[in-house]
Amino acid sequence: MLSWQSNFLSRAFLWLIISAILCLYRVLKGPTAPDRAVAVDMLGILIVGFCAILSISTGRDWYIDIGLAWALQSFIGIMALAKYLEGKDFDE
């Protein structure tokens, strides 16, 4: 890998961390419970991208396995969370 590429990839983390901070803002602030659930779902997908970039920049292939497992378990978790939300009553 060329030097400008590895240089670039180390800056890519900055963007992902800013996006994750925006998601975390919504998790903390969100007026209702579904808002927080949406933000947690997006954080789960962002972490998959994070694992993919880690696997390029460090050259360790097993990071993408973590991403795959994370995608599976975050989907199942969100389904359970949404089923829980459906039976509840939330006002503002």
Partner: peptide, 30 residues
């Protein structure tokens, strides 16, 4: 290859979870 598998999985499941969250939010009275 694992990246391709992960891509297909995310493309299939992300709309499903969005749909389920929207429905759950509506049914819970938001």
């Amino acid at each position: 290859m694992k990246a391709l598998l992960c891509l297909a999985f995310i493309l299939l499941t992300a709309p499903v979870s969005a749909h389920v969250l929207a429905r759950g939010a509506y049914r819970s009275g938001v």
